[in-house]
């Protein structure tokens, strides 16, 4: 690795060595190196400081730096493990690791639960589910009557809240996902399997030969 990697770590706070990240995630060292090329693009798109700010995340997702989205905000907050308002390279790779096709399904189910637990109470509450449905309808320019929205939320909530205590806990969520596995389809990114093949252009700039 030599001076290039140490030069990189001086310039970019939160940078971690590919070997360390590869040891803790489903990625290989060269895949982490390839992810670093992607990370460099994203983290310098608006503010050239080597850190992904929310506007840069929005730009990458929507091609629009100002587009707000409840779910993208939640993803950003979960990626921002240190809660310092930016996504660092180590956080980026570790969080993306959950989306790897080889990542344990249990990790994907747990991540989705934290995603939907908007107020981080350790439960998914009915009001949160309704808030997310309304956010989706708004995002998709779909208009539904209040009754239909309530019916959709009620039916899903009753199905999931098997203990009937008015909130969905992690156990109930695991059970619910096992009945409806498509609910976590977003939690797997096929791109991440052999990312160096999917994006050869990334490999050109990556250092490590596997």
């Amino acid at each position: 690795m030599g001076c290039a990697s140490s030069k990189r770590s001086k310039r970019t706070p939160g940078y971690e060595e590919p070997t360390v990240l590869a040891a803790e995630t489903p990625f290989t060292v060269s895949e982490v190196e390839a992810l670093y090329e992607l990370y460099k693009k994203l983290s310098n798109a608006i503010i050239a400081d080597g850190l992904i700010h929310k506007e840069e995340f929005q730009l990458a997702l929507f091609r629009n730096r100002n587009r707000r989205n409840l779910f993208a905000d939640r993803i950003f907050d979960l990626f921002d493990v240190k809660r310092n308002g930016v996504i660092e390279f180590g956080e980026f790779v570790r969080s993306l690791g959950v989306f790897h096709p080889n990542a344990p399904v249990a990790d994907k189910i747990a991540f989705a639960f934290r995603l939907y637990d908007l107020r981080q109470t350790g439960f998914i509450e009915r009001e949160e589910l309704k808030e997310m449905v309304l956010a989706l309808l708004h995002e998709s320019d779909l208009v539904l009557s209040e009754d239909v929205v309530e019916t959709i939320v009620d039916k899903t909530f009753t199905d999931a809240d098997t203990k009937g205590d008015g909130k969905i806990d992690t156990e109930e969520w695991k059970e619910f996902v096992s009945k409806h596995p498509s609910l976590i389809k977003n939690m797997t990114l096929p791109y991440l399997k052999d990312i160096t093949l999917a994006f050869p252009s990334f490999v050109v700039a990556s250092e490590v030969e596997e």
């Binding site: 449905v133 239909v148 791109y191 990312i195």
Partner: peptide
């Protein structure tokens, strides 16, 4: 058209904000 019997989480999972594959598209 959204059927009233639809699973709310299924509906939510269609959000573009949850589709990270666009991070990887050129």
């Amino acid at each position: 058209v959204v059927p009233a019997t639809m699973n709310a989480f299924e509906l939510i999972s269609t959000s573009q904000g949850l589709n990270l594959s666009s991070l990887f598209e050129k």
